[in-house]
Design a protein around this nucleic acid. Structure first.
Length: 263
DNA sequence: CCTATAGCCTGACGGC
DNA sequence: TGCCGTCAGGCTATAG
């Protein structure tokens, strides 16, 4: 569940449950998920400290413990956070378990172990080292910036939107939604779009992501003209009622309506 | 610069 | 029911 809106919802969840909580003990599951830090160092940098702030950049979440000390979480394809009191309620695939001094626990659950856990001193430096582009929901990421970012590129629009080095936050599902709402065929290259269309794509991108956040990234709550609830083989296009189809684009499956999104 | 593929992991699902 | 192949909202490395 981890594109920008999903991670934003996890951030809000962390805010509501774990902010101002003191970390008492830490246990690490799969060590392979650790990035640039040992389990011992991770524990010592968390234990005894209080979560004071959270921040998100693209699909990355950071939980701050003061003094240039941030817990970095990336959720891969299946990661999530769970806050609970009863040990019986602990998730099945916890890779990191934090005990708070109030008796509650925060678990990082990751069935497929595709995410990352780390510690960073400075988020800006981390973003730079990773080569991540600006967060697409930041207000400073405006149309002019978007235009400059994609200028001279020939890749497909879908691939460009998903390129975390250019702009951070969009993944396979939400790129499909943006293409659907702007009626762009998944194979369309970005340099085939005129300035007006590009601007429409930009505004739709912002709007789709904000709407998803407002709906707590729950497809059941999405407005009815959204493709995502119908994003599977045999789904019905919410616009024309036709059947939703799929294509392979850069190794990912793109769902679209061949009637509404013409080449 | 751009695309396609494989690998990392494990669960869910469809076909037989 | 059980087995098998395929696929899944991520990222990275590699090859052409």
């Amino acid at each position: 569940m981890p594109e920008l809106p999903d991670v934003e919802v996890v951030k809000q969840y962390a805010d509501a449950t774990s902010l101002h909580q003191k970390v008492q003990a830490v246990r690490v599951g799969e060590r392979r998920m650790l990035e640039g830090v040992s389990a011992e160092e991770l524990a010592s940098r968390l234990e005894g400290h209080i979560f004071e702030a959270t921040q998100r950049h693209g699909k990355y979440l950071f939980l701050g413990l003061g003094d240039a000390n941030w817990l970095m979480l990336h959720f891969g394809m299946t990661g999530d956070l769970k806050y609970f009191k009863d040990p019986d309620k602990k998730p099945e695939y916890e890779q990191l378990l934090i005990d708070f001094s109030n008796g509650y626990h925060l678990a990082y659950d990751a069935p497929r172990k595709l995410g990352k856990i780390g510690m960073v001193e400075d988020i800006g430096s981390f973003v730079k080292e990773k080569g991540l582009g600006p967060d697409v929901m930041k207000s400073s990421f405006d149309f002019g910036t978007f235009q400059d970012t994609v200028a001279g590129r020939r890749a497909m629009l879908k691939t460009t939107l998903m390129d975390q080095r250019l702009m951070a936050g969009i993944g396979n599902v939400y790129s499909d939604e943006i293409l659907f709402q702007t009626r762009v065929h998944p194979r369309t290259q970005i340099n085939q779009l005129g300035e007006q269309k590009l601007e429409e794509v930009f505004h739709t991108m912002k709007e789709v992501l904000q709407t998803a956040i407002d709906c707590r990234a729950d497809p059941d709550q999405f407005p009815s003209p959204y493709l995502i609830p119908q994003r599977y083989e045999g789904g019905k296009c919410p616009n024309c009622g036709g059947e939703v189809g799929k294509l392979k684009i850069s190794g990912r499956t793109a769902y679209y309506c061949s009637n509404c999104q013409r080449e």
